[in-house]
């Protein structure tokens, strides 16, 4: 699905990523863990195409194409989705309207007929149930006045509608109480399929109790220092991160 090779990137001249190598196959769920400031969010932002990051070395190949040459909207059309850590509010822009514009831009790109309002509403109503999002959210402004948990549910709802092939969940568990976490995780689990890869960026093992990863990576100091199975997450929970650095240095 995606192959990242020796990726170096900086923000305002400061090196953040220092040689990331990561390959994710179709249908796989990977968790990327690591302490604050290790570059986890930078990595997901670069994959999604956010401004303000300079890739100084390395490559990202997605479905055989050079991802770094694509605009963020092209990446979305090609099936990349980022669930934001802090979803922004866009006052006055209807939640459903935004999604419909996104879905139809993608369909246009794929040479498919655009969906009309009625067809789209049917899809949207169906998907909203997945994350137990009340219908009233569909017609509200994008994230306008949503609580933290509602914003995160809205992100997963959008993921369900956009049906990505690679979903990046950036600290989707942060700020969620236990019930909201269960709802969000159920939503993601429903969306798991053999054609869809998921990357979860998280601090805590808690999320991984609900969404079981195939592979766990530890990102520290701009590099992936260790890769393992889901047991690695439990070990990190117990022992912290320092031992990983010591082991890598040894």
């Amino acid at each position: 699905m995606i192959e990242i090779k020796d990726l170096h990137a900086s923000v305002d001249g400061k090196a953040i990523l220092k040689g990331i190598n990561l390959t994710i196959g179709a249908g796989e769920v990977h968790a990327i863990m690591g302490p604050n400031g290790s570059g986890k969010s930078t990595l997901s932002n670069i994959i999604a195409g956010r401004d303000g990051y300079t890739v100084t070395k390395g490559s990202i190949t997605y479905k055989g194409k050079n991802l770094l040459e694509m605009s963020p909207e092209q990446r979305s059309w090609e099936g990349i989705f980022l669930a934001f850590q802090y979803p922004v509010e866009i006052p006055g822009v209807n939640n459903t309207y935004l999604l419909k514009a996104g879905v139809n831009a993608k369909r246009k790109h794929q040479g498919l007929q655009e969906l009309d309002a009625i067809e789209f509403l049917q899809i949207v109503r169906e998907k909203a149930k997945l994350v137990e999002l009340d219908q009233s959210f569909l017609s509200r402004g994008v994230n306008e006045g949503f609580s933290g948990g509602e914003k995160k549910r809205n992100e997963i709802f959008q993921m369900a509608v956009l049906e990505p092939s690679l979903a990046l969940l950036d600290e989707t568990d942060s700020g969620l109480d236990i019930d909201a976490l269960r709802i969000v995780a159920n939503g993601v689990n429903h969306l798991r399929s053999k054609d869809r890869s998921v990357v979860m960026v998280t601090h805590y093992q808690r999320l991984l109790d609900y969404i079981q990863p195939d592979v766990v990576h530890v990102l520290m100091d701009g590099k992936i220092l260790k890769t393992g199975g889901k047991d690695l997450a439990l070990e990190l929970e117990e022992r912290g991160y320092d031992w990983v650095r010591q082991e890598a240095a040894a």
Binding site: A48, G49, R50, D51, S71, P72, E73, R75, S76, W77, F81, L82, F84, P87, V88, I90, P91, G92, V93, Y97, L98, L99, A101, G102, V103, A105, K106, G141, V142, Q158, L162
Partner: peptide, 21 residues
């Protein structure tokens, strides 16, 4: 960026945000 990451071009995103405003 939020709009773009949902598949909406930068120009359309500006229009959408302005009209929302």
């Amino acid at each position: 960026f939020y709009c773009q990451s949902r598949g909406i071009s930068e120009e359309d995103a500006v229009n959408m945000i302005v009209n929302g405003f």
